[in-house]
Design a protein around this nucleic acid. Structure first.
Lengths: 198, 198, 198, 198
DNA sequence: CATGAATGAGTCTTCATTCAT
DNA sequence: AATGAATGAAGACTCATTCAT
């Protein structure tokens, strides 16, 4: 297949990443063997290694993909409505998380949690997570600023701190949803609404 | 002999769990080999297997230990002061987390994150995490009830939902602290204070 | 078409052998991969396999080429001067070896040593080496005969035995030159001169 | 087997090296797989890797062993007879080589040739070969010095150069013996005798 | 004819666990 | 009870060769 490259190459990488994501969402990074990924991708060992140099590179690609997918859709959501209150922002975020988690092809939030654990002793993953999360949190800084301008939120607090808290609610949502299983966008939003000033 | 044996047995188990925790905090569950644990514990392979049937059992013991340690101290903190506001509860929680993370013998919060990831495909760990977190979140239900009694928080919202949000802030704190490195109990508490009604 | 094809075919084979020789001189037969040879030759995998059926065939071609190149030039050297003494023959041989070793395109003596090792368990290579070396040693038989006619060397000894010794000095020169690095045509010739009758 | 170490450890290493030597003499360094060595040694994979960190380390051990065995016996041979002429030294050397080559457990000279090839692109092997050969050649320097004292050999030539030539005859003997198959200690010694002054 | 992506058997190595002493 | 050498089933990765385009 001499002249298929570029789009073909990208498509194959996507194919492999998709296969790997499915495996990783089911079994985690470490229980997922290259043989699993190879089987799931429908390619041969040699072919997979033609697109990725190592398992670590595939793991990094999945993590990047999983964290990016969250950020990508966030960007538009947060940019959309003009007067985006903290509560509305969190609601949108959490609904989006629940939505992508239910998509076919492996729960992205499970991959995300794997990435958290991996980031602790894998610098490549840590760099990816760090970059994506900083970006994501940046959106909440903007939300905080608007709320301060509205007078809804104390104007003297560093909006970064407020963003830490708003962004910080998301991991807790993901985790409770997967491990305790009794948290939904509705309950979480209602809980936050009760805490915030009416 | 049973008495001595029992204490001895427990002490040995603690010794092994402590050794394992150090390894796991540094390298994660999967990069930690039994040889690492055996070396760190100062025992022999045979001895370690005399106290734990398998690596999985040790992993479960570490996870239990890590999650319990958080809960144990929480219990007293939350029981202590009478009029514990949501903000004060979160502050205490987060300060405690930062404190235990700095203790010698391996950062417990790192082990905790490993446990989150592991829980997704290891039922024993999931059961432990589930139990501990349900307990932990229960304390926040009580906090929510008090705040509703005070009139600080909307009395018509299910206090469980409010607890989901308050408890849900903690994973976000742990994660940002370790991966982004710019979050402290002070910034986090300030951020939350700004959002809550003055 | 057969004529153009034939020259073309030979030129391509030479191109591949030259590329392979460079790789083999640097890394040895076994560390040299077909991918290396393909890259160095500037051809495609398919093209290379159009000219050689297998890696083994390429290896045999390199070995043949390396051993032939030594022999080819030997033939003329030994045929040139009329009264060629054993010392002069060895000197010419050793100087020629040092010269071809320094040529661009991969040290032929390194390829030669590889061929020795390979000959031990590869019958094709063994046959090539055997043939070339028998030829090469044949020249020294002639030298021995002349020296016996001169009275310089004992006439009762089988000239084949004398040739074994004269020819046998060359591998030792190649080896010491590459591994110990302190042997030159001058030192080696001087050493032999000291041993032979004045 | 808790308390067998030291002699046991050395014995096991020898056992592995012996097994590996047999394989390598038959098939060469590269065609010999770890599975071959493991099978031949009668141990398990894990056991072999308990004694050697890698295949390279085993290869180095075989090379060391093969080259040492030659040197070890040389030392005594050359030290034995008082007035050791160059011819007698070469004869002893070559007879010893033919003897060890015939020993059971893998032809050491074949391993030696493999080591020559390997030394060209493996620094560990090169270092071993370099050391052993320098030692070995050192013995011939002594032989040269004695011959110069006797007046048998030109006293103005650096004895190192003479040693290069005497030592340099050995690889040629080994090679012709294995590849051409028509050289024996007797023919080689006779050939040299014919060349040297009567 | 040429291309080079794809193949998949085979390589080295690790590591949880056992058991003879 | 304790020891730690031994086990061997996987695991990640390579590379000579083919064949659809």
């Amino acid at each position: 297949m001499p002249k298929v490259s570029d789009e073909h190459r990208l498509a194959r990488r996507q194919q492999i990443v998709a296969a790997a994501r499915t495996c990783v969402a089911e079994q985690g990074f470490h229980k997922t063997t290259m043989a699993d990924v190879i089987r799931a991708s429908g390619l041969s060992a040699g072919a997979v290694y033609g697109y990725f140099k190592s398992k670590d590179e595939i793991v990094a690609a999945i993590a990047d993909d999983a964290l990016s997918s969250v950020d990508r859709l966030f960007e538009e959501i947060l940019a959309r409505e003009e007067p985006l209150t903290p509560l509305a922002a969190l609601e949108a975020a959490v609904e989006h998380v629940a939505f992508v988690a239910g998509q076919a092809g492996g729960d992205v939030t499970k991959v995300g949690i794997q990435a958290w654990a991996e980031a602790l002793h894998n610098d490549a993953i840590k760099a990816i997570a760090s970059e994506k999360y900083r970006m994501l949190r940046g959106h909440f800084v903007e939300v905080a600023r608007r709320a301060q301008a509205d007078g809804t939120v104390d104007p003297d607090t560093d909006p970064e701190y407020i963003a830490q808290v708003l962004f910080g609610l998301i991991p807790g949502f993901i985790l409770q949803r997967l491990i305790l299983g009794d948290v939904t966008p509705q309950t979480y939003t209602a809980g936050l609404a009760a805490l915030l000033p009416r």
